[in-house]
Every structure is written in C-alpha cells, then in structure tokens.
C-alpha cells in the first residue's frame, strides 16, 4: 500500500469471522498531511468490514475535529488500504482451509 503518512493497524487480533473489527489509526508522518492533526495519539474505532465505507469514517474523523477536510481523502485511503488487506488475508485463509 502507498505510504500516506497515516498508519492503520488492527487494534485486536482478527479471528477471521467477526464482521466488525477494531482498528487503530495514527499519523506516522505529519509532513504528508496538508492540515494539522489535532491529536498526538492514536484513534481507535470499530469498523464493519461488510457494511461500512472507509471514506465515511474518515469524514466522521474530520467532523469530530481530528483532521482537517483537506486530509479526509488521505485518511480514507489509509483505512481503505488496511481494510482491503484484512479482507484479502481472510479470503486467503478461507481458501487454504477449503
């Protein structure tokens, strides 16, 4: 995945079954953001892999004051990349089991 300066990791072990997982997001490289990141910490949130859209969560983070509007796309892409990886891993595991 592209280095967006925003890191997204699993905040819990993925059991491969739960549709909703906990993710943790933080800014790894502030220089890659256009606006200022309000927090110095990591933001933990839950994400439904089947129903939710990464860009919507990114927008909620903007509305909650963590990021500026100019960085919504970057944050959304960072979440989307991680979610894609989680889904790919799940698919691969299911294929091996099968």
């Amino acid at each position: 995945a592209e280095d967006t300066g925003v890191r997204v990791e699993l905040a819990e072990e993925d059991d491969g079954k739960k549709p909703t997982i906990a993710l943790k997001l933080w800014v790894e490289d502030h220089k890659k953001l256009k606006g200022k990141y309000k927090e110095s910490g990591a933001i933990e949130f839950t994400f439904d892999l089947e129903k939710e859209v990464p860009e919507v969560v990114a927008q909620e983070m903007v509305e909650s004051g963590f990021f500026q509007e100019s960085d919504a796309k970057t944050v959304g892409k960072s979440i989307r990349d991680r979610v894609a990886l989680i889904k790919w891993r799940r698919g691969r595991t299911a294929a091996i089991v099968a």
Partner: peptide, 27 residues
C-alpha cells in the same frame, strides 16, 4: 496512560490513546 473519547453524532466512538511505542517517524 491517558485515554480520551470522542463520540461522533452518527454514534461512532473514537478512543484516543498514546501511539504504540516506537511507531512515530518524525517525533
């Protein structure tokens, strides 16, 4: 370590906690 919480109007809860140690590039 300090954690705080922000709840968006749509209901999603954001929990802010310290960044995992050694995971910042520019600080």
């Amino acid at each position: 370590s300090a954690t705080s919480q922000v709840v968006h109007s749509a209901g999603r809860r954001f929990i802010v906690s310290p960044v995992p140690e050694g995971r910042l590039k520019d600080q």
